[in-house]
């Protein structure tokens, strides 16, 4: 499978169609793990791999937050269907246009983020939550496809995780999130790994005035995590990267999905499917409900 990928990458680099291929490569000390690599030399395409441990959403390297990567030149990106959702969202938000990029899509049956569950193969039990209802196992747009097309999973998102949360009383939900956020160390790995957190200066880093205290105490942690979730509402494509990278295991994607469900119910919209769609929170229509403005 990785072979086709390497051939495509080599050709793109050799022909000068792109200057860099953003892909996954093995972590040397733990070859069961992969990590993002930037391949600029056609002779190094052998480092590219594609397997169910290719969890990183590489779309993050396409944003202006990672300008040093863009300085390498035009990029080809290796992307799963869910990563392509992020690319679609970024195009919709006018971060770049489709022509600026070559997408090497990979047909995907799922990934395994939790290394402790990995026994050498993908199973029903170890694959990520997002993969259980995936409708983009063949990416919705690509220039080259690695592997045979994979049909979508024959099941719709049941929002089970979100419904369980909603069944709690407001007090219980409050306590639950307080307990979770309490241990946030404010490392901002969630933000740095997120393709949609590309602000040049995040509100959390602003100091004049300081909107969010940098102290890692419950008051500030709550402010940080809620603000981030709100800034991602209607934009987050539920790739789960923030949750995966959180070093203290806060279930961030549950929070994202709570908001995604609100947006799906209230606006009939899910992010990452259509780069032409008007984004729900950046669009004004005269017939919008205004009764709440007094």
């Amino acid at each position: 499978m990785s072979k086709g990928l390497q051939d495509i990458a080599r050709e793109l680099l050799e022909k000068g169609e792109v200057q860099v291929v953003v892909g996954w490569g093995a972590v040397k000390a733990d070859p069961d793990r992969t990590r993002p690599i930037l391949v600029t030399d056609p002779d190094e395409v052998g480092e590219l791999v594609w397997n169910p441990r290719c969890v990183n959403n590489l779309a993050v390297y396409l944003t202006k937050a990672k300008s040093d990567v863009q300085a390498l030149g035009k990029a080809a990106i290796v992307a799963k269907g869910c990563d392509v959702k992020a690319i679609t969202g970024l195009i919709q938000e006018m971060q770049f246009s489709r022509d600026d990029l070559v997408i090497i899509g990979v047909a995907c049956k799922g990934v395994v983020s939790d290394g402790s569950l990995w026994q050498g193969e993908l199973t029903e039990e170890n694959r990520d939550l997002k993969c259980r209802f995936c409708d983009v196992r063949t990416p919705r747009t690509y220039d080259h496809l690695v592997g045979e097309e994979v049909p979508p999973v024959d099941a719709e998102d049941d929002w089970k995780d979100v419904r369980e949360l909603e069944e709690k009383t407001p007090r219980e939900r409050w306590d639950y999130w307080q307990e979770q956020f309490e241990r946030c160390i404010r490392c901002y790995a969630c933000r740095q790994a997120c393709p949609f957190c590309y602000c040049t200066r995040c509100i959390a880093d602003k100091t004049l005035p300081r909107w969010i205290e940098s102290g890692q105490h419950p008051r500030a942690n709550l402010a940080w995590n809620i603000i981030r979730a709100m800034h991602l509402a209607g934009r987050c494509v539920e790739c789960g990267e923030c949750e995966r990278v959180c070093p203290v295991g806060i279930p961030l994607n549950l929070l994202n999905r709570e908001l995604a469900k609100e947006v799906a119910v209230e606006y009939g919209y899910r992010a990452g499917y259509d780069s032409e769609a008007p984004p729900p929170f950046a669009t004004y229509r005269e017939e919008d409900d205004q009764s709440f403005i007094r």
Binding site: P36, I37, L38, I185, C187, Y188, A189, Q192
Partner: peptide, 13 residues
């Protein structure tokens, strides 16, 4: 190591 995301995960743990 340009792939570094600039988070504080390494330093904070």
């Amino acid at each position: 190591w340009m792939t570094c995301l600039g988070c504080g995960a390494c330093t904070f743990v």
